[in-house]
Design a protein around this nucleic acid. Sequence first.
DNA 1: GTCCACAATATTGTATACAATTATAGCGCA
DNA 2: TGCGCTATAATTGTATACAATATTGTGGAC
Lengths: 228, 228
Amino acid sequence: MLEPVEQKESGSARVAESLAMAIHEHRLSPGMKLSEDEVGEIYGVSRTVVRAALQQLAHDHLVELKRNRGAFVAQPSIKEAREVFEARALLEPRTARSAAERATPEDIEILQNHIDEEHAALDAGDTGRALHLSGMFHVEIARIADQTTIADFIAQLVSRSSLIIALYWQRRTALCESHAHDALLKALARHDGAAAEELMKHHLLDLLTSLDLRDQPSVPKSLKEALI
Amino acid sequence: MLEPVEQKESGSARVAESLAMAIHEHRLSPGMKLSEDEVGEIYGVSRTVVRAALQQLAHDHLVELKRNRGAFVAQPSIKEAREVFEARALLEPRTARSAAERATPEDIEILQNHIDEEHAALDAGDTGRALHLSGMFHVEIARIADQTTIADFIAQLVSRSSLIIALYWQRRTALCESHAHDALLKALARHDGAAAEELMKHHLLDLLTSLDLRDQPSVPKSLKEALI
DNA sequence: GTCCACAATATTGTATACAATTATAGCGCA
DNA sequence: TGCGCTATAATTGTATACAATATTGTGGAC
C-alpha cells in the first residue's frame, strides 16, 4: 500500500477547478454574479460544497465575496493590476533562471507541448483556451524550478492576470506572446539562466505595456451557458 | 451613506484569525489535530463555520486537511522551509526598498511601536507574542510599500515561517532579530532604499541560517488549554 | 411624476441531520 | 502472546432546514 495515495478530490475542489477554468478561458466575465443556488444546480451539488468552492476562489482573488450579497467574479482594479505584475516581476525572472539551470529534456518537451497546444488553440480560434495555456506555461516554469511555494504564488498571479487581461487588454496588439515563449523555451533548453531571466523580465514588461490601465471597465453577462 | 462600509467580520473569519494567532504565538504546535467539534465548541459556533475557517487556514498552509481524517496544524517539511525563505528573499528586499522610498513619519512611528511592543513582550517572557510581533513588522513594511498583493504573500510567508521556527529553530541563537529590525527602521526613516534592501536581504539570510534544516521533527499536544 | 416608506421576495449565513469513511476496540484463532 | 478480522464508535463529507440580511416591488404622499 505504498501508492501515492491519490486524494480523490472533493466535490468542492471539482467545482472550484471548473469555475476557475471558466474564468481563465474568459467564459465567465468579471463582475458576473455566481449565485450559490444556480451554481449548485449546474454541478448537481448542494450549496455547502458550492460555498466551499467559492471561498477557495475568493482566497485566490478570482471571485469577490460580498457579505450577505453573494459571490461575483472579481474585477481587479487598475492598482491591483499593476500590483499583480509588480509581484510577477519580482518572482518570475529569477525563477526562470533557476528553471533554466535545472530543466531536463523531459521538461523542455512538456513546455514545447504547451506551446504547440497554445498555437493549435489559437488556430482553432479558441483564444480563451490559448490564453489559459499561455498562463500554464509560466506556472510550468516555476514547477521546473522545483519551487512549489513560488509556483503556487505564480499560479495565483497568472489566474488574476487572466482577469486583468479580460478587463484591460487592448485588442490592437495581437498574439505577440507566442514568440516570447518560443525564445524563453530556447534559453531554457540551452540552460542559459541569464538569458531566461532577461527574457522573462521583458516578456512581463511587454505584457504589462500591452494593457490599457487608464480607464474603468465592466460588463457581466449570462451564466449558465458559459458553464455549459 | 458614503461610509467605508466596515464589513462586520463573519464568524469563520473570527475563528480563523484566532486559530492563526494561536499558531503564530506557538500555542498550537505543528501536527496538533484540530477537531471540528472541539473547535466549534470552544468558539461556540457550528461545524459549518469551523470548516470554513479551517479551509481558509489550509489555503495559507497553516493547517493541513487530510480527507476524511480531519485538520492538523501544518508541519512544513525542510524543503518547504527552504522554499518559504527563498520566496521571502525574492519579495522582501525589493519591497523594503520601496517602503524606504515611501515611508512617512507616521509609518516610522507605527514600526517603532511594533519594535517597542516586541521588546516589551520579550521582557515579559512572552516569546510567542514577541515572535508574532516580529513577523508583523515584516508585513507592515510591505503595507508601507503600498503593495497589497505582495503584502498578502509576505503575510502568508511570515505565518508559515512561524511554523518553521517552531519546528527548526535552534535555541542557542538568542534574540538577534531585534537589532536587525532596529537597523532596518533607521534605514527606512532616512529613506535609504539601498540600505533597507541590503539589510532586509541579510536579515532573512541570518534568519535562515539560524534554523537547523537537517533532521526531522514532530510532537503534538493537547488542544483546549492552548486556546483558553 | 418623483420620492420615500413599507411589505414581499430572494439570497446568503448558520445550525442541524444524515450518509460515508475512518479509527478503535474486542474477539477469535494460530 | 501476537496477529488479523469484525463490529462498534467516532469523525468528517454532504444535504437540508431555518434565521438573518439584502434586494425588489408596491402604494401613497407631496
